[in-house]
Design a protein around this nucleic acid. Structure first.
Lengths: 220, 220
DNA sequence: CGGTATCCACTACGATACTG
DNA sequence: CAGTATCGTAGTGGATACCG
């Protein structure tokens, strides 16, 4: 761990926080992922060894606590919440371009699955099918099964009746999800379509709560 | 530069910001250091090659602009100001222990020199002499020469009459500067003393504006 | 003053396999 | 499910010297 040898609290904080992946681990914990393999799903390109190491470091530093196999933030860790949010807003405003490798459908679905607004989804089981036309290698079809308080992500057809289908480019769906464009704008030119009964088509955008950074105004 | 391959704006922001030294370079720029060698004084353990590289990266990313040999933050860069401040507050609250190598008198004096409150210092020339008893290797004696709007840091006796002397441990002076303890508390047990005319002794703490993190409440 | 150039030592990280 | 073990390498960053 590279020390800066400065008494400045920014330097002392960054000694801990500027190591690769650390802030993303904290982001996942702030999103209420508490189990090792849940954290992994939000950090698919991080090796398990490194995730383990980071969790130990954060525990040693007093930001994270492990209790009955569940990771949780301490007061110190939770106080980074507003900072992570501000960084998200800053990133949404100023780091524009997304490369194709940034567009990971697995990550998108995992993120969407935990931001389902259960008050907005009809009772019973709803199945949202995603069909991304621009994803190669058979990872273009996904299903979100919402039943009660449970939401499951499937990369195979779970067999239930599909309530509604989102059909189009992954890039556009990500742009909507990040708040770069609104649902309305994003559906306008046909790069993305919602297919299903009229009432569900109208309601679907309300089934998901966008992230805090999504509503941040973009620079003119 | 390690990409995360995530569309999340936090990840996109951290791809840029979590490289070693980057946030400290931004801190210096936010403190209004604009010239290469001024930046170096605030980052003494950073090699010039690496500082140069970081400045280029930040320029390419649109956070920094070079104009007539002066570095300046762009709008994007300046918007990180509140985030850096929040990180400073967080660090002051939660990253307690300072190691001896964190206590660099050169850095302390450089920091103090740019936070002189010229409205509080008497007109004419004032010389503040620091005598740190716990610093080895002849780097324990420093002078701050305040004249008009200029403040000079000297590690040798500039020859002028000394207005007031701060005598004691560097560690205590740093604790005061960081806001871990108040001037009053810090002077109480004799680890640090202000030596000089009564009126100046009383006024000296007011000659410097503490950093924004210094006044942040510490956790109970 | 304001940087580049060079070179080396590490070590952090990624990939993969494996275990309790 | 929840990690640990192992291994090789890319590449970062530190030190120092040097240049316009």
């Amino acid at each position: 761990m590279g020390a800066y040898y400065q008494f400045c609290p920014v330097a002392k904080a960054m000694e801990l926080l500027d190591e690769r992946w650390t802030m993303l681990v904290l982001r996942e914990l702030l999103m209420d992922s508490r189990r090792f393999n849940d954290l992994r799903r939000g950090l698919p390109r991080m090796s398990p060894a490194l995730l383990s190491k980071r969790l130990h470091q954060l525990t040693a530093a007093g930001l994270v606590r492990l209790e009955d196999g569940q990771y949780a933030l301490t007061d110190a860790g939770r106080e980074l919440g507003p900072i992570l949010e501000a960084i998200g807003v800053w990133g949404a405003r100023w780091v524009g371009a997304l490369g194709d490798p940034d567009l990971d459908p697995k990550l998108l679905l995992w993120d969407m699955h935990r931001r389902v607004d259960h008050g907005a989804v009809p009772p019973g089981r709803s199945v949202v099918h995603f069909d991304f036309t621009d994803v190669t290698g058979g990872a273009g079809r996904w299903w979100l099964v919402i039943a009660g308080q449970d939401v499951d992500v499937c990369d195979y057809d779970p067999g239930f009746d599909v309530t509604v289908t989102v059909h189009g480019t992954l890039r556009r769906m990500v742009e909507i999800w990040r708040g770069d464009v609104s649902w309305q704008q994003g559906l306008r030119d046909g790069a993305l379509r919602i297919v299903g009964p009229e009432s569900v088509r109208r309601a679907l955008p309300g089934w998901f709560a966008l992230a805090s950074y999504a509503t941040a105004p973009r620079p003119a």
